[in-house]
């Protein structure tokens, strides 16, 4: 259950593009045609599935506070987490290079379709972001880390294929000249992100039930107005907090 939940959460609710804006640069640059978008999306899934578990191991056994205990009890106090940026990015850069070499050797056809995108991906923020969020969300096991990597990869894939399809169609509509290209892409992405926010309720059914209970406490008419106002306040606060969490 935990796995299913994390999987869907990383695809829809914490979608890399729409909720955290990761990998926007390549998302905007390579989304003019569906076919190239599919290629890049597939490459992102692949690389995320490799690097997130790998960086999880790195974090768990080398970087975290007390992670070096396996070397001996005297290493228990070491905290190398300040090195995580440099270690993660080095892992990603080398892995991408390695994957490129292996794919080229064993599957030339796959290399032809993914090949040109692989070097691009080393500096895609979605990849490093995947590892950094994996670290900050304290994902517990290697299996979950793999799950998270694949899930967020699929989320990114969905997003780029969807925007590419929209951009192919939008070419035939009369967009105001100043909005053409980049501007309209931003606004469409914004609208898609609003759509994806509706998935947010998927896993919070329990919270809504609690809220309703709260509302029933209202007692008399004159107090009602005040309570409503207060609730509004609470709601805006909650929204603000939620956005902070998301970001």
């Amino acid at each position: 259950m935990e796995h299913v939940e994390l999987f869907f959460k990383s695809i829809f609710i914490d979608n890399m593009v729409f909720a955290t804006f990761l990998g926007m640069c390549s998302y905007l640059a390579v989304s003019k045609k569906v076919s190239t978008a599919v290629g890049l999306g597939a490459a992102v899934i692949f690389v995320l599935a490799v690097t997130v578990p790998l960086n999880w191991l790195l974090d768990q056994y080398i970087l975290k506070e007390g992670a070096l205990t396996w070397l001996g009890p005297e290493y228990a106090e070491y905290d190398l987490s300040f090195l995580s940026f440099i270690m993660f990015i080095a892992t990603i850069a080398t892995m991408v290079q390695l994957v490129e070499i292996i794919v080229e050797k064993f599957s030339p056809s796959l290399y032809n379709s993914l090949g040109i995108f692989l070097p691009l991906i080393a500096v895609n923020c979605a990849i490093l972001g995947g590892s950094l969020f994996m670290q900050s969300r304290e994902i517990a096991t290697l299996g979950l880390a793999l799950n998270y990597g694949i899930g967020s990869g699929i989320g990114w894939f969905l997003a780029i294929v969807a925007i590419a399809a929209i951009r192919e169609k939008i070419r035939y509509s009369s967009v105001p000249p100043a909005l053409r290209g980049l501007g309209i892409t931003f606004i469409v992405t914004g609208l898609m992100a609003i759509g994806f926010m509706s998935f947010g309720g998927m896993l919070t059914g329990g919270d809504d039930a609690k809220k309703e209970e709260k509302k029933e406490v209202v007692i008399s008419e004159p107090v009602k107005e005040e309570v409503k106002e207060l609730q509004k306040e609470e709601d805006t606060k909650e929204i603000a907090e939620n956005t902070k969490e998301i970001e």
Binding site: F18, A19, T20, F21, P176, P177, A178, L179, R180, G181, L182, G183, I184, T185, F186, I187, T189, G190, L191, A193, I194, M197, I239, A240, T243, I246, E247
Partner: peptide, 27 residues
């Protein structure tokens, strides 16, 4: 405060900027 509005605000900034400077409009 929610995430999507950031995209739309940037979209509007691009719109304003390109309306002021026609040379920047994309084909």
């Amino acid at each position: 405060l929610l995430a999507p509005m950031a995209l739309i605000v940037v979209g509007i900034i691009i719109w304003v900027q390109r309306s002021r400077n026609k040379a920047l409009i994309e084909e």
